[in-house]
Design a protein around this nucleic acid. Sequence first.
DNA 1: ATAATAACGAGA
DNA 2: CTCGTTATTATC
Length: 694
Amino acid sequence: MARRAARQVTPADDLPVARVAVDVSLAHLDRPFDYLVPQRLAALAVPGCRVRVRFAGQLAGGYLLARAAASDHPGRLAYLERVVSPEPVLRPEIAALAREVADRYAGTLADVLRLAIPPRHAAAESAPDGRRPDGGRPAGGNPDSGRTAGGSPARGTGGARPPAPAPGPWARYPAGPAFLAALADGRAPRAVWTALPGPDWPAEIAQAAAATAASGRGTLIVVPDARDLDRADQALATGLGPGGHACLAAGLGPAERYRRWLAVSRGQVRVVAGTRAAMFAPVHDLGLVVIWDDGDDLHAEPRAPYPHAREVLALRAHRAGAAALIGGFARTAEATSLVSSGWAAALAAARPQVRASAPKISAAGADTELTRDSEARSARIPGLALRTARAGLARGPVLVQVPRRGYVTAVACENCRASARCAVCGGPLALATGTGPAACRWCGRSDPGWRCPACGDPRVRAVVTGSRRTAEELGRAFPGTPVVVSGGASVVTSVAAAPALVVATPGAEPRADGGYAAAVLLDGWVLLGRPSLRAAEEALRRWLNAAALVQPGPAGGEVIVVAEASLPVVQALIRWDPAAHAERELAERYTLRFPPAVRMAAVSGPERAVAALLAAADLPPDAEVLGPVTQDGAAAPAGNGAGRAPADTVRMLVRMPRSGASALAGALQAAQAVRSARKDAGPVRVQLDPAELI
DNA sequence: ATAATAACGAGA
DNA sequence: CTCGTTATTATC
């Protein structure tokens, strides 16, 4: 009997039921499952810990959501197989957030948790107080980021609070000091921040974090890429002192990544900066979320369920009652929508301050158009751009921004160059690979009777993609001047104040010490001609980000954009008025009924599977289905008779008024559940408000 | 994947 | 009607 009892597994005396989120991403299994906690694991099986369970006959990972006294499950409960570690890596706050994100994006909790919680590294977990043995890594940023001196302070008190900071650069914004004061006071102001051009934004963010820390609360900052993270890291180190913050970067190794994440999860660090994946960082007592340059497509997670950092941070601010700062030189239609709905306030400088900070910007358009197709290559660069570059090189470095190659061929009016849109749904027209008439990339219709709505011309032209060669020729025009190239595989972080031509693709512009003397933004029509809903917004964002690196106009800084000066988007750049452009953009999205005015779902995959999913979906009556349209077949090499190319992939769009957004996501989630239960699942992708509606 | 369960059909 | 086998379905 004694032997037998020893062998027999018995449930824990206290709260014997464990509610577990099992790591399976099948839609019909996306709910908690109950297990019994064996006596031997009673102390280890704490809420939030990683467990192993037997699920459908095989061993699966999972997270213990909660302990309970009893289960609703009518059948027999299995026992937990193992507690991987008692470290509570999934606290209720993040579990609830992940659930909300999964529902918002018609995805599964398991998929979101894979994005939210980094892989475990046992050594990092068992290290005594999280301190690393070695001094620091060369490119890892602040070596002490990731831990605070001493133990973790009591919740909510934050230990020794730093004093509320002086406004500093925030004083340049009329509402800036009040915003900081509100943060320091423990309130939750929400702002869409149009940053003044120049190098101050990391310091401004650091100051907001310091103000929030003064109220005893934590801050989470998300930036697009590693270079921006380095800048934020330096500013935070200066503003908060050593060990005051942690950086969560994608480039860290698994051990270091998990070590820093653990320090955050344990509440040892309350100020966290990172790239996209950090949007789920379990910052304690969250008081402020910050996203920089929310229009950058790096903020869109490419893995299912494709959440966007801005949306996730907005959800978090809402849930936690935290402040929000959505900042950038540019302004997205989405951020503008947050302002117009009253969710956030606009935080911007007054016009005189903007004029004092921005470079002098002019457009070179008309003469470009005349000489663009000329054989004389140097003629591709307007005289004004050459003269400005020459003048700038006398004073310091000059930035030349060149669009990347390889955008899909969009179509524009032959006469007035307005980009061609579908008469039926408003989507962009584009040329299919090879020949054939221009067709809408959203609804698939081709429109042989197309006429330009602006000028009535029936002719269309392909929009040519730009070439980096142009910039190399520009270098030849200035013999003896050093040329720095940044882009693609080799990205340069910063350049000295000395005269040099710095040729960069958008997003790869180095920062110049003391600012560039001048910048030339080449081939604007390539950016503007992209067959995307966001073409204009994105072009403006890239131009503003480059122009923000140039010295202010009063100090001599000049920018030439090679684009038609009469275009509203070019005017917005010249006047440095991203907010007004974004307002117009948002108004247009309302008339065309595109996000963020409506919610859009993109369903893509093999034609049959896409059709089956939408057939299974109980879509609300006011949902509008567009398509199908065949995806551009990734330009697969046309050799090899390997049967079908990957070209039977189609996409359909479903659009829905914002009031029915959650009904749309719910219907698609349910449809996927039906499909996965029937195992006729094909590889179908469901994306809500996809970043790039090509 | 795998176990429980429903469905089915052939032989008593 | 029972037993042995195979589809179906749920997965604690």
